[in-house]
């Protein structure tokens, strides 16, 4: 029983890796389906803007609110900007954007591809001479991987603005002091970390959604299961992968 389960998991991982390799290969060599690529940039990028902006804003705001009180105990209230920006750029921006994308994009991809699988549309694609990896996976991987850093930068920016609003209105920190503490406290390495992370997380979220979607079985019930699985797996992966990249980047660039 345990060996069978272990075998299943290994098989799943093997299939996932195979899909990732095929996707990367598909990006490098044609044919490309440009209409689908543009559509996915629109759906994943622009479509996720609202949720990312809202998440970023409130995270920045609550961060300023919470840390303001703690910093007060050390008489360090003016440093609130530094704390908000460092947390947003290095950690919360990428991770929370990743989690939002896992919920919105990962589930959407799994549901869409999953229902295409159970209604034979994916087989129909293959029968019509189309490689589903190039048609379905490559556009989503391109859009997810390239739009996640863009969305993260937006979340960071909006978060810092949210923090500024709380810092100036509630905590009575001078606006100039807030911005100076940000520019003094942020290093180039932080920016790199803030950009590399979402790049990897975007890839992980989208490929997870595609993998789970393509392996859907069992009709409409199976699609429901695939959607839930995609969100759960992608969310856990976001947190876990974030830890490992952080560890790796600390060794490499700091």
């Amino acid at each position: 029983m345990i060996t069978r389960r272990a075998k299943e998991i290994l098989q799943e991982v093997q299939e996932y890796v195979r899909l990732c390799v095929a996707a990367v290969r598909g990006i490098g060599s044609g044919p490309w389906y440009f209409r689908d690529i543009v559509q996915q940039f629109d759906a994943i990028g622009l479509g996720s803007m609202t949720v990312v902006v809202l998440t970023g804003f409130f995270t920045g705001a609550v961060l300023a609110l919470q840390t303001g009180m703690t910093l007060d105990q050390f008489g360090a209230r003016p440093f609130v900007g530094r704390l908000v920006s460092a947390s947003m750029v290095k950690e919360l921006g990428p991770v929370l954007t990743g989690l939002m994308l896992a919920g919105r994009v990962g589930s959407g991809i799994a549901a869409e591809i999953g229902s295409m699988v159970v209604t034979d549309q994916v087989n129909a694609l293959r029968a019509l001479g189309t490689d589903p990896i190039r048609k379905l996976v490559v556009p989503r991987v391109l859009a997810g991987t390239l739009m996640a850093p863009v969305l993260t930068v937006i979340a960071d920016t909006v978060g810092i603005i949210g923090g500024w609003l709380i810092a100036t209105v509630q905590l009575r920190v001078a606006s100039s002091l807030y911005w100076t503490s940000i520019t003094e406290g942020l290093y180039v390495q932080d920016a790199w970390m803030g950009l590399i992370k979402p790049f990897v997380l975007g890839f992980v979220i989208v490929t997870t959604g595609c993998h789970v979607g393509l392996r859907t079985t069992g009709g409409t019930q199976g699609v429901g299961r695939a959607t839930t699985n995609a969100v759960v797996i992608a969310s856990v992966m976001v947190i876990a992968v974030d830890f490992f990249i952080t560890r790796l980047l600390f060794t490499l660039i700091y």
Partner: peptide
């Protein structure tokens, strides 16, 4: 292999159960 199959499929047409039209 899948790549070579694509060429064979060029001469084949398949009507799936329920149609399998792209929604």
């Amino acid at each position: 292999a899948e790549g070579e199959l694509m060429r064979v499929r060029g001469d084949l047409g398949m009507v799936f159960q329920e149609g399998a039209l792209f929604d």
